[in-house]
Amino acid sequence: MAVAPNTQDLTGIETPRTTFGRGSFLQREGPLAALFMIPGWAILLLFMAYPFFLGIYISLTNKRLGRSAYDFIGFDNYRYLWGDSIFQQTLKNTAIYGVGTVPFKLAFGLALALLLNRQFRFSRVFRAGLLLPWIVPTALSSLAFLMLFNSVISPISISLQQAGLIENNINFLGTAWNARISLCVANIWRGVPFFAITILAGLQAVPTELNEAAALDGANRWQRFWAVTWPIIKPITLIATLFSVIWTISDFQLVYVLTKGGPANATHVFGTLAYQRGLNATYFGEAAAISLYMFPALALGAVLLLRNIRREPH
């Protein structure tokens, strides 16, 4: 639009800012920064940090929903879960869910971004249109998948049967691996547009002159991508991947609507197991522990990745 992002600056060096330290209170950076932090942090502290620490505390107790009496039991919930075969299964499922979706979302998202980065007729319509999976409320799009993967009325099964390719309805969600694959497909469907649009944003920062120069030097498509494009889109791609890992591991809605963790616990993820143990069975302490199990690992990963991105020159 009118204000094009300052692309020149992308390769440049950060100029050290002069600090206007002598003015009034509001002219100094430190206090002003602190002031600016207040509204956002107030909300985050009240509605996130407080319940979060409450959640940590609950995970160290044997609290049950609606019971006033409970005891502090230290790490017993965590220890108990470690030995619980359903929880072990959940860990495995979550790993499968992550490995089975994030790389695909990344690869497809990158490919789609490269396609959408070109100028062609109606490119804007395609850009907006292909975002639809991300726009439709998940609560409703997962119902559409519930139909597509239905054992009886799946249009996929029906049309394949009409084509004579299969005889019986496909058991999309009924065996352990079918259900996992189906969930992964639905998750990839929902996640690709986010990757695509985010990486597309990164691609727009790639100066065309650089690419052209490389092409003149005889670099092929593949070489140009790694030498010119990738360094520029790398930070944003890593960030998108980090977001996606977080969203995937803490996914709830899709699994809840499609399988509720079935068949025979083959698709339980942290969210659905915590829901089952905490809400249906009222074991709050244990449910909180399930939700928090991955937190340290995720937080560490996030911090390392963020530092890594920060340290790199733009």
Partner: peptide
């Protein structure tokens, strides 16, 4: 049985029965 039943929820058999399946 229809062996896809491992995936069914409470609504599936209603649909299937009414579909004559």
């Amino acid at each position: 049985f229809d062996t896809t039943g491992t995936a069914w929820d409470d609504s599936t058999n209603n649909t299937a029965f009414l579909a004559g399946e």
